[in-house]
Amino acid sequence: MEKPCNSSKVIEVTVISAEGLLLNRKKPVKKNACVVVRSDPFNSRSTGMDREGGSYPSWNEKLVMELPVRARFITVEAHSGSKLIGTANIPVSDFAGGYLPENYLSFLSYRLRNANGEKNGIINLSVKVKGEGAKSGCGGGGSCTASCSGRPWTGVPPVDGSKVSDLGIVTGIPVRYRY
């Protein structure tokens, strides 16, 4: 039987800020917003609480964590005190692999969705993959040799609100992009 692969790479996730955080879909968050980032069910890191930013909090907090090689997502949860405001699933392919070189600082923003699958603000963060995990740049010669025949990026529509899973997490499917 094949031995499970335990190798992982280190990622630096800087949780920058969030926008338009609401409680119960209408009341702007007043204070104490924080963010939890999970790379797997047993590995999570949390920011401190932003006591001033209200529904537009900012943290600028760097969280260093391990990312299992087989992980396909990291999950970001925004909380206000003990209340979950919204969640976003970030495909690993958005910040690692393809053309992007090792140590590339990716700035990423995602729509947060609440337990009912409804939009509830935006989370802004940056991710840098450390160590040998990130695939290095392609060896293509000229900058322009890529043919024009390739398929453009495609995406998967977000899950319909009525069919959302009990956990209230947006289901994202990683799509192989060309860089």
Binding site: Y99, S136, C138, S143, R151, P152
Partner: peptide
């Protein structure tokens, strides 16, 4: 009228340039 392909191609050139520093 589809833009996706040309944007992908431009992005590929830009990201290749990043990879080559």
């Amino acid at each position: 009228t589809l833009f996706g392909h040309v944007v992908t191609n431009a992005a590929q050139i830009a990201s290749g340039s990043v990879a080559r520093n």
